[in-house]
Structure formats: C-alpha cells, structure tokens
Nucleic acid binder design. Structure first.
Length: 151
DNA sequence: GCCAACGTTGGC
DNA sequence: GCCAACGTTGGC
C-alpha cells in the first residue's frame, strides 16, 4: 500500500465537500507528472492526506482512501467543465483521475507551518522549495506522523 | 533541441 | 498583491 498527499483549494473543493459527497472523482489534474501517477501508480486502497492549499492557513486537514484506480478524466472533453482540453478525447484520453472516499477529518488540522517544525517530515516533498505538484507520494512514516498530529 | 516568453502555482 | 519556482509553448 502507498501513501499520497493531494492538494486542493478549500474554496474550490475542501475536506468538507468530500465529507458530504463521501466519494468523488479527483478530476482536473492537468500536469503530466501528476497524470502519470494518477494513471500508473495510485492504487485502490492507497491512503491520501488531504491538504488545503492557497488559503489562509495551508494545512493537512484529513484522510481519504483511493477507491478507484486511474481512468480517463472525462471532464477534459467537456467544454463546459472547469479544465477543458480539446487535445483529450474519449478515443485518446490525455488526462486521468482516480476516485477517493472520505475517511476522516482531523480533529485539529496540521498546518504547513507546524509540519515544517517536525524533523520526521523534513524530507517530505511538500516542504521542498518550489514544490508545485498537486499530488505526490509520501512515506508511511510521513502519513503516520501527520495523522497522529491531527488527532 | 534550444531557449525566451509566458502562464500557473502557492506561500507569504 | 508580490514573487520565486517551475511547466509549457512556439519560433528558430
């Protein structure tokens, strides 16, 4: 089993949305590195730290679980969607997504600022300079440390 | 295939 | 709103 961190802007789609929806497809990723992970690496049963970015207090806010492995992101060929891409078609899909299910919302969210002070999280991609990927792998240790801080 | 210009992300 | 970092685009 592998562990991942997914970023989302809470104003756009936050942990409370996922809690309400129970499961949701993680669409709209338009970056090749992230696409490759969604298509090839993220497996059913993998665990996800849900992270709020581009907001007042950037923070890890909960846990989700992968319930469906990579399949074509059909929002790409919907011109009315948030991130349409005419280069992607049902015959030749360019972008992929997975489905995730709500597991829990942290009792206290774990801010980016707090995570920076934790030695065991020092090598996490989230804390590296210039990190812009919207999702990336984390270690089991990272996952455990963050979930413990959140409870 | 190089690289300048431009766009986007995201913390601050 | 600023800016650093990085991805993408497109001319050559």
């Amino acid at each position: 089993m592998n562990y991942w961190l997914f970023k989302s802007e809470p104003g756009c789609y936050g942990i409370d949305h996922l809690k309400k929806d129970k499961t949701e497809h993680w669409d709209g990723v338009r970056n090749y590195q992230a696409r490759n992970m969604l298509r090839d690496d993220i497996k059913k049963g993998d665990m996800v730290i849900f992270y709020h970015s581009s907001c007042k207090v950037p923070a890890a806010v909960g846990v989700a679980k992968v319930v469906k492995e990579g399949y074509p992101d059909f929002t790409a060929w919907d011109p009315k969607s948030e991130h349409p891409d005419p280069k992607s078609t049902p015959d030749k899909p360019l972008w992929y997504m997975v489905d995730i299910a709500f597991v829990k919302k942290f009792e206290s969210e774990v801010s980016l600022q707090e995570m920076r002070t934790i030695r065991e999280l020092g090598d996490m991609q989230l804390l590296k300079r210039g990190n812009r990927l919207s999702l990336f792998p984390i270690s089991k240790r990272h996952f455990n440390v963050i979930t413990e801080l959140g409870s």
